[in-house]
Design a protein around this nucleic acid. Structure first.
Lengths: 154, 154
DNA sequence: TTGTGTGCAAACGATTTGCAGTACC
DNA sequence: GGTACTGCAAATCGTTTGCACACAA
């Protein structure tokens, strides 16, 4: 029951993402294709940071004819569309990560009008983890508050 | 007078950095060389994020015989030594930035013993600036506190 | 039907590496 | 004096691109 629910939520998410991508493509006079559809499917079903080769391997199991170039080209589009982010560790390869839509977020606080802008930056999150582990620190939670002046008050 | 003082501080800094690097090399059974010395000199005198080619151009003006490979190899060593950090923007090139030793820092706080670890992560700082400007937010200051368990308490 | 997308292979460009000579310690 | 370092050029490897054919709109 619970598993089924999760599955449904997942499916819905992927569909919405595809719709958003299709819209993005249309605006640029581009087309949705079976390859792009499949790449989104595989990318968003997978966990963690995938490099092109990992995507390629998984995609070739479903559509053996797919080429590297298509995956490269599609991932660039997903980044441009805002559905994925590039990540560089130190191994010379580009890795891709979902843009998460989690509940956790940090805050920007306007010193003049007091308005609060919520944001979430996966790269900052990752770096916090990295810093913690460098110091052998077991991270429980964190708080990042950025103070300044919002668009209207600056 | 003030300028002179700054100059002295700068010189002292570079010397200290070289000493630190020499020590690092010695520990690994490696040697300081005129090339490495010069690369440090140029790198730490320069501002901002330099790519290999920019370093190469500057270094060739002083020591025309220097090769690309040496610069690549030395910058990797500086990173390993903790004096430089790699930075990837999106242009396919690696850029290098000094590890700053500023006064600003953030905190990790142990929930058990209350000990505080200060840290400074230039990448987090940069990302905060990026997030702020994405939201047209003029950043004044920030506070990053990470809570968890220190090495001894975890 | 009309482009736009794809797969392939070749091209590209940043980085690494093998090697013979050089220079630190 | 022995060994690590350098410069050069070739090799490597991730990524991009040109082109002829395929397919979405």
């Amino acid at each position: 029951m619970a598993a089924r629910k999760i599955h449904e939520v997942r499916r819905a998410d992927t569909t919405a993402l595809k719709e958003r991508f299709r819209q993005f493509l249309t605006e640029l006079g581009m087309r949705m294709t079976t390859q792009r559809d499949l790449i989104i499917e595989v990318f968003f079903r997978a966990k963690g940071h995938l490099n092109i080769d990992e995507l390629y391997q998984q995609i070739r199991q479903i559509q053996p004819g797919t080429g590297y170039a298509t995956i490269y080209r599609t991932m660039k589009l997903l980044v441009k569309c805002g559905l994925a982010v590039e990540r560089h560790f130190g191994d010379g390869q580009t890795r891709y990560e979902h843009v998460p839509h989690d509940t956790h977020h940090d805050h920007m606080i306007c010193l003049k009008c007091g308005s609060i802008i919520e944001f979430f930056n996966p790269e900052i999150e990752r770096l916090q983890d990295a810093v913690a582990s460098q110091h052998h620190f077991q991270l429980a939670h964190h708080r990042l508050e950025m103070f300044g002046y919002c668009k209207n008050c600056r």
